[in-house]
């Protein structure tokens, strides 16, 4: 009997024992393109083949926008309480704990100040990974305080939205964060400080009905979902088939609600170019 003769029929290796590449080495974009993770990181987390902008969080955006990834985080230790003792299929504090454990984040926004192309910029960046980037009291307060910081230091302000909307577990308290954040933006406007709103995938609900649409410029990443009511709600309410590209960045640009769409690799340059132009400063190289 030859030594290589198969003694048993079929493949006997159990699934667990099959050799596999370690997780996270490759990324597959929605169109099916496979990208090496290192390659993706170098390319600003945009799939080089189809231009798909992968959902990233505050860590990555700060890395992209702040020089040498140097920044000072503001109000890093604010965390949520459970003022309404909210309980659905899960208790709200349990949801918070689970989210914190999963994401290593304290809530759905991080705010920071740092140099971007050599000049100070205040950025509030939402994290979708934390309960869908939902806006509760902490998100509202952190954004308000970051705006206050910008006001005090006379700095431009930027919010990167990535959120499903208001946080249901804080009910009306989260609704009031729309007013709280908008009031601050009004004060920034009165002080003549530029505010840039970047809409990323997804920007819906309460964020769209407040700061995401209130920028001196509203800009977006390509292909992001941006809207007030989610597409499913619109379809269910109206019974209409939604046109292709409904509520994408390109759709909003066409309907006049965005100033421009920018590829992530150009984001830092374009934001700073706008700031230089609107504040009548020489353009930074």
């Amino acid at each position: 009997m030859a030594w290589f003769k198969r003694k048993e029929k079929g493949i006997q290796t159990s699934t667990e024992q099959k050799k596999d590449t370690p997780k996270g080495l490759w990324y597959k974009s929605p169109t099916g393109k496979i990208v090496d993770s290192k390659e993706l990181e170098k390319n600003f987390y945009v799939s080089p083949e189809d231009g798909y902008h992968v959902r990233i969080g505050s860590k990555e955006y700060f890395e992209i926008l702040f020089d040498d990834n140097k920044f000072k985080e503001l109000d890093a230790n604010l965390t949520s309480k459970d003022p309404l003792k909210f309980e659905d299929t899960k208790k709200y504090p349990d949801r918070l704990k689970a989210a914190e454990k999963k994401t290593n984040l304290k809530d759905a926004v991080r705010c920071a100040v740092g140099k971007s192309k050599g000049k100070d910029l205040v950025i509030a960046c939402m994290d979708f990974a934390f309960i869908g980037g939902s806006m509760g009291s902490v998100v509202g307060e952190k954004i308000a305080r970051a705006a206050d910081y910008a006001l005090k230091k006379k700095l431009p302000f930027m919010i990167i939205s990535k959120s499903g909307g208001a946080r249901m577990m804080e009910a009306a308290l989260s609704l009031m964060q729309l007013a709280k954040t908008s009031a601050k933006l009004g004060q920034l406007a009165d002080a003549g400080l530029p505010y840039i709103s970047l809409c990323t995938d997804p920007t819906t609900g309460g964020t769209t009905a407040s700061f995401a649409m209130l920028g001196d410029i509203n800009i977006a990443e390509p292909g992001a979902l941006i809207g007030f009511a989610g597409p499913r709600v619109v379809r269910d309410t109206t019974g209409q088939e939604l046109p292709e590209g409904f509520q994408t960045s390109e759709f909003l640009l066409e309907h006049g609600f965005l100033d421009f769409i920018t590829h992530r690799k150009d984001l830092k340059n374009k934001v700073n170019k706008y700031i230089d132009l609107i504040t009548n400063q020489p353009l930074r190289a």
Binding site: L78, S80, K81, P83, G136, S137, E141, E170, Q177, A183
Partner: peptide, 12 residues
């Protein structure tokens, strides 16, 4: 503005 700034409940 003060009235709305005070809305919300959080720790820290």
């Amino acid at each position: 503005i003060e009235k709305y700034s005070e809305m919300g409940v959080f720790k820290g």
